[in-house]
Design a binder for these strands. Structure first.
Lengths: 222, 222
DNA sequence: GCTATTTTTCTTACATGTATAAAAATCTAC
DNA sequence: GTAGATTTTTATACATGTAAGAAAAATAGC
């Protein structure tokens, strides 16, 4: 057992790099050249070490990306003035998280995390929970409500980001276009009706509308 | 230009495998041993070919997984009797999609698709659109409403599936546990209040509650 | 039959994440 | 000092997706 009052020298070979250094260097690469260029080998070279040395500071690449996201969230999420009215506070807090995440283009690779639980995001989660409780929900239902909002928010970002990436990769006609091309208006009239407007309609950013509807529904259920 | 009335012989080396065969073999592997065991080499061996030959029938592995999902959806999604009342029809259609997808454990890898646009899912999309229009929404707002439901549904599945996978991989204490361990009850009282119940609360399946709230909110907004 | 064309298949090669085990660098006990 | 113990770093190796191009197998025109 390590003695907390003992002199601070630990045994073993002293580290030449630190987790902080790894994260900071990774951030530089991602900021400068995009997440695609972030490889463990590249990162090791940049930091003046070897690929496997990194694995003593991060569990694997996925954890590194989560740490990068936390790091990003800590910078991007400052605490704004939120409205006093509970419903509007919930909207504003969720929208702030959404805005920060949506601005982070490499996010879809990570965003499937269980919650966004970086310390800097907790304050926003607190605001949402508080708004829900103030609106009359029990703490338990407030947690469920927050999760619902998170599912919607994460889903919106992941779906949109991935769709954008696929569009960039593909050249030929989308699978979607092919499907819409031979819709039977008798069998699927509503889809046929909007078929030619589907692309622009789904390209619109309706996150806030959906969020408000969702929160309205959550609060109306008492 | 190919003449439709010409004899059916096409030039070029005749294919020894087909896209259907690739998909069917891939499905066998996934069903029997899980999606992790599906590699292009394994699939090629199983099918009696070489890895690169597969790439003439599917664009890449991601497309193969999407095709697998479509194939799965075609089998899993039979058209049930849906309620006549629009709101309940929307709930039932979305819940049917959700249920089919949630039962598919390898889904998170693919589910970030733009929409679930396999032909067999279209009927459900139609039902949702129709329910929304019948409830008074314009076709445009109905499309937005459907997308909102899809974001929520996809987000729920992806987040839950990934969380389950991470729990299975990790051994040590969760990042989440560590975060909750040192919460300051003065700064974040609501979170502190539910901290010890967070894991069971978020493990509960509240998809249907959230879905109903969301649809209520969408319909209330006219 | 011979050549050109077209389509599919096969061979080879590379970048990537990471497992495994050896090596290096430090501390502690004697 | 010398011998473990402990921790970090390095070297090597492997599985994977897939790019690039050669080879094979068919048709079409002559």
């Amino acid at each position: 057992m390590p003695q907390p009052s003992a002199p601070r020298k630990t045994p073993g070979r002293p580290p030449r790099i630190s987790r902080e250094e790894v994260i900071a260097t990774a951030r530089r690469i991602v900021d400068a050249e995009g997440v695609d260029r972030l490889t463990m080998r590249r990162l090791a070279t940049e930091i003046g070490s070897t690929p496997m040395a990194l694995y003593h500071h991060v569990r694997n690449k996925e954890e590194l990306l989560v740490l990068l996201l936390d790091d990003y969230a800590a910078r991007a999420l400052h605490r704004p003035e939120l409205p006093a009215q509970p419903r509007e506070r919930i909207v504003a807090a969720a929208a702030a998280i959404h805005e920060a995440l949506a601005a982070c283009p490499w996010i879809a690779e990570v965003l499937t995390a269980d919650d966004l639980m970086s310390t800097s995001a907790l304050w926003f989660v607190e605001q949402i929970l508080d708004g829900l409780v103030e609106s009359g929900l029990t703490p338990e239902r407030a947690v469920h409500g927050y999760r619902t909002i998170w599912y919607y928010t994460a889903g919106e970002i992941v779906v949109r980001t991935t769709a954008a990436r696929r569009r960039a990769d593909d050249d030929g006609p989308t699978y979607r276009e092919r499907v819409f091309a031979d819709l039977d208006p008798n069998e699927l009239p509503r889809l046929a009706q909007v078929a030619d407007r589907w692309a622009p309609l789904t390209a619109e950013n309706t996150y806030l509308d959906g969020l408000r509807a969702l929160i309205d529904g959550l609060l109306a259920a008492h």
